[in-house]
Simulated assay, not measured.
Amino acid sequence: MVKRTLPRLYMVSNSPERPYPAQELPALVRQLTAQLPAIVQIREKHLDAKTLYEMTLLVKSLMHDSNSLLFLNERFDITLATGADGTHFPENSTPLGKVHAAAPDMLLGKSTHSLQSALSAEAEGADYLIFGPVFDTPLKKRYGSPMGLEKLEKVSRNVSIPVYAIGGITPANTRQCLDHGAYGIAALSIFHISENLSVTLENFKNVLDQ
Rank of each mutant, 00 (worst) to 15 (best):
R4M: 14
P7N: 05
R8Y: 04
R8D: 00
Y10F: 08
S15F: 01
P16R: 04
P19C: 07
Y20P: 02
Y20T: 10
Q23C: 06
E24T: 11
L25F: 11
P26V: 10
A27K: 13
L28F: 04
L28E: 01
V29Q: 06
V29F: 01
L32G: 02
L32H: 05
L32C: 02
L36S: 04
P37A: 01
I39G: 05
V40F: 08
I42P: 12
R43D: 02
D48I: 07
K50A: 10
K50Y: 04
K50T: 13
E54M: 06
E54W: 01
M55R: 07
L62K: 08
H64W: 08
D65Y: 07
N73M: 10
E74Y: 10
R75G: 05
R75L: 12
F76G: 10
T79L: 09
T79P: 10
T79Q: 11
A81T: 09
A81F: 08
G83K: 12
G83L: 12
A84S: 13
A84L: 07
T87F: 00
T87H: 03
F89S: 02
P90I: 04
E91A: 05
N92H: 09
N92T: 03
N92F: 03
S93C: 07
S93Y: 00
T94N: 01
T94Y: 00
P95R: 02
P95C: 06
K98I: 15
V99P: 04
H100W: 11
H100F: 09
A103G: 11
P104W: 13
P104A: 09
L108K: 09
G109R: 11
G109W: 12
K110F: 00
K110D: 02
T112S: 00
T112N: 05
S114P: 03
S114I: 01
Q116S: 00
S117N: 02
S117M: 02
S120A: 11
A121P: 08
E122F: 05
E122D: 03
E124H: 09
G125R: 09
Y128E: 05
Y128R: 06
I130T: 14
G132M: 10
P133S: 12
F135W: 14
P138Q: 12
L139E: 14
L139H: 14
K140N: 13
K141I: 12
K141Q: 15
R142D: 14
Y143W: 15
Y143D: 13
Y143M: 14
S145R: 15
S145G: 03
P146Q: 09
P146R: 08
P146I: 02
M147S: 15
K151C: 03
L152G: 08
L152P: 10
L152R: 04
L152W: 02
K154Q: 12
V155A: 03
N158P: 03
N158A: 12
N158I: 04
V159N: 02
I161E: 07
P162H: 07
P162N: 06
V163F: 05
Y164S: 06
Y164A: 04
G168Y: 07
G168M: 08
I169R: 13
T170K: 09
P171N: 08
T174A: 15
R175I: 15
R175L: 14
L178V: 14
D179N: 15
D179E: 15
D179Y: 05
G181S: 11
A182C: 10
G184Q: 04
A186C: 10
A187W: 00
S189N: 07
S189A: 08
F191Y: 05
I193P: 03
I193Q: 14
S194A: 15
S198D: 14
V199H: 12
N206K: 15
L208G: 04
Q210I: 09
